[in-house]
Structure formats: structure tokens, C-alpha cells
Amino acid sequence: MKSSARQTTPVKIKIAGLNLWYGDNHAVKGIDMAIPANRITALIGPSGCGKSSFLRCINRMNDLIDHVRIDGQVIVDGKNIYDNDVDEIAVRKRIGMVFQQPNPFPKSIYENITYAPLKHGQVRKGRESDALVEASLSSAGLWNEVKDKLHSPGTSLSGGQQQRLCIARAIAVSPDIILMDEPSSALDPISTEKIESLMLELRENYTIVIVTHNMQQAHRTADYTAYFHLGELVEYDETKKLFMNPGQQLTEDYITGRFG
């Protein structure tokens, strides 16, 4: 039961009949969804509703967990990423991810950024990677704060800075899509605000899908919002419409705080 969002922009990710089981636990149930390009799409819903599991299907992070079974299609730019001829490494290269807890590597800020692009052969050491570090950190709004200590460890930054470093690290691989799994739930309000305004800037160049517990966050940042309940997609619409005039009783109960 859902009303599909009226799309005014081209579709970036088309999800069709997606199911996911952890062993016998049917965690994601038959999701059909079209995620528009260069927009922020928020996934909300109570804990255990399958929104994070769903998010991890989009860059095949669930492949790594034992006893997980997935069927259905996730079509990105016209290609199902679960097709046999698709390499999950190539998928994750194009679809970046930012996690709930900031997780910089125990390396320098500089190396945090350049690690993956160097291994992917996207840049060479020296001037190219210097430029990449500056560009990525600037996009993540972190350049001015860290430009004088690029070689100190990434873990020496504050929590909010670490999370922006993680975003810069994801951007450095030049993905088209960035998935964010509750990116600010571990941060203070000021850092959260910085992350949110960063997301709005990044929307220009990236398709962003964010899982959040925080309905205000979805309201403030997302163009479209999807409400998940018990593994099902209950409602998916423009954020404004979903919050002002939810089409489903379940959605209304959730956003008015009757449960959560």
C-alpha cells in the first residue's frame, strides 16, 4: 500500500520487488521504489523496520553477511546491480556510504582521503592526490578546519569533523550516489546542522539516500521521504506532502509520535 511519488526528475535508482531475509527473518518485503537523481530521499520508520537493511541492499553491503538472501532488482542507471555480470566492488565504488558512527581509518587525514582512490587507480601519488584531498575536503566543508594538519591522524578530530571526513572520503572515490545510515545520530546539534547543510550542498552533484530516526531531519533536508514499517514500504511521497498530509494511518501515527 503506497502512493508513488510524482517524479519530476529522472530516476536514478529503480527498485523492483526487493526482498531480504536474514535466515528465516523476512526483513525487507517486496519493496518497489524509484529514487530520483540529484535529490535527497529519506527513509524513516521505527527501529527494526528494515530501512537500514534496505539501504545496505543499494550498495550490496549485505553480501558480506552470512545467511542473507536477497531477491528482486536494484536498477541503477538502467542496470540491475544484482546481475551476475556486475561486480559488487564496482557497485560500491559508484555508490558510497556513510555510517552512523564516524569511522575514520587510524591513518592521517590525508591518507583517509587518498586510500581508496589510489587503490582504484583514480589518482596518482603527488600533485593529483594533493588536489583530490583539497577538493574532497572542500566539498565536505572541512578544508579550512584541517588544511594545516593534513598529516595528523583522522581520529584526532572531533566527532562532527570525523563524520565530515568520512563524507569527504566517500566523495573522493567520485560516486554518483551517497548512502547515509543515520549519519548524525551520534553527533551534537551543531555538528548535525553542519552535516545537514552539507547534504543540501551535495545534492547538486549526488543522489543521496539517507536513513534517519530524526523526523525533523527528514523534514528539513529530504525532497522525498519513504516511511517503512515492519519491512514494508508504507508510504513514499514528496516530503512536504508526506508530513503535511499523510495518505496512510500508520504514517500519520508515526509522524505525530503515537509510536516510534
Binding site: V76, D77, G78, K79, I81, D83, D85, V86, D87, I89, A90, V91, K93, R94, H120, G121
Partner: peptide
Amino acid sequence: MNNHPFHDPGL
């Protein structure tokens, strides 16, 4: 057939 967007021979 290999011209899909995720084709990456370097891998």
C-alpha cells in the same frame, strides 16, 4: 554486453 555502467575491467 559488457557496456553496462558497472563494467570495470581494472577489477
